[in-house]
């Protein structure tokens, strides 16, 4: 699993929101690697820091948030602390992003064609005809029927699935090397969900693009990504190839997540679903040591002392837990 130079390398990323009088840490030292052309899933509950991580890559953590420490390298180039102008050249051109809400992510007063053209002309100097041709090509690429007609459509005239396809077309317009997909299907019907994931997989293959899929949906991860990073309270708590993670989840949090899905391994129909006791801690009240310890069945006194390292527990399978090999 060694690569000369991973496409995206995030090291010890710390992002905090500085509210009056309090610092609210959202990401607390995240390490994450995405190889060229790879699909990685970043999984966690709301508020665990996964979206903030994506925005940090683009340098778009808004006030009062700030990247406090750490490094984000894209193709070997440090992005943290880059000048605004240089960051703008990265956004859209090298890293594309798709959001959760296709309903509101398009500007209501402009046509689809206009917005798609803008995605292109921000980074490329093209003639009118070239822009039009490419826009038609992009809409065709994302599977929108009658692309020539759709260029003149306003967002309100398209369905959610079509709008998400347009968003994807905009995100890949400049052929980025990395696509950040933040809950790209959460707002869509299940059938449309499958189509959109299929589209992303096809584009990834055809364009040789890496995809960081950010989601809370383990089912989506199981079917669509090669490697998974599980986040909890701003930390990566487990990382493994998808198959390994589902076959043998090591961190108690991951086990809890998988155990709470109907039909999880080791359960029989008719069993009660297992829920993780307690709630996700508020970012200012994360316990010392292991952030999960006060909800964990396996916790011992040692868990309160230090934050465990994210270390290999099996080949290619890392977890941040002292008690991995203990079973209840």
């Amino acid at each position: 699993m060694t690569r000369a130079e991973p496409l995206l390398q995030i090291e010890n990323l710390q992002v905090s929101f500085f509210l009056p009088g309090v610092e609210v840490p959202a990401v607390r030292g995240l390490d994450l690697v995405v190889g060229a052309g790879e699909t990685v899933g970043l999984v966690g509950e709301s508020g665990c820091g996964k979206s903030v991580t994506a925005l940090s890559v683009l340098g778009l953590v808004g006030d009062p948030g700030r990247v406090k420490a750490g490094s984000i390298r894209l193709g070997g180039r440090e992005l943290v602390g880059l000048a605004p102008r240089e960051l703008r050249a990265v956004r859209g051109r090298q890293v594309g992003m798709v959001f959760q809400e296709p309903m509101t992510s398009l500007n209501p007063v402009f046509t689809v064609g206009y917005q798609l053209a803008e995605a292109l002309t921000t980074h490329f100097d093209l003639s009118r005809q070239e822009v039009r041709d490419r826009c038609v090509g992009l809409l065709r690429e994302v599977g929108i029927p009658a692309p020539e007609d759709r260029l003149g459509a306003y967002p309100a005239q398209l369905s959610g699935g079509l709008r998400q396809r347009v968003m994807i077309a905009m995100a890949v317009a400049c052929r980025p090397r990395l696509l950040l997909a933040d809950e790209p299907t959460t707002a869509l019907d299940v059938t449309i969900q499958a189509q959109i994931m299929g589209l992303l997989a096809r584009l990834r293959r055809e364009l040789g693009m890496a995809v960081l899929l950010i989601t809370h949906d383990l089912g989506l991860v199981a079917q669509n990504v090669g490697r998974v990073v599980v986040m909890y309270a701003g930390h990566a708590v487990e990382e493994a190839a998808t198959a390994d993670l589902f076959a043998e989840p090591l961190h108690p949090y991951t086990r809890g997540l998988l155990g709470s899905i109907p039909g999880a391994p080791g359960t029989r129909p008719g069993d009660r679903l297992r829920a993780i006791p307690g709630n996700v801690p508020h970012p200012t009240r994360v316990p010392s040591g292991c952030p999960f310890r006060d909800r964990c069945d396996l916790a011992v006194d040692a868990c309160a002392d230090t934050l465990p390292e994210l270390e290999p527990k099996r080949p290619g399978h890392r977890a941040r837990c002292l008690r991995v090999d203990r079973r209840v």
């Binding site: 683009l58 102008r85 990265v90 956004r91 509101t104 500007n107 209501p108 803008e118 921000t122 995100a171």
Partner: peptide, 14 residues
């Protein structure tokens, strides 16, 4: 703070 503004920013708009 609407999402289409964020979407524009994500594409590199100043």
């Amino acid at each position: 703070d609407r999402e289409f503004v964020m979407a524009a920013r994500v594409q590199g708009a100043g």
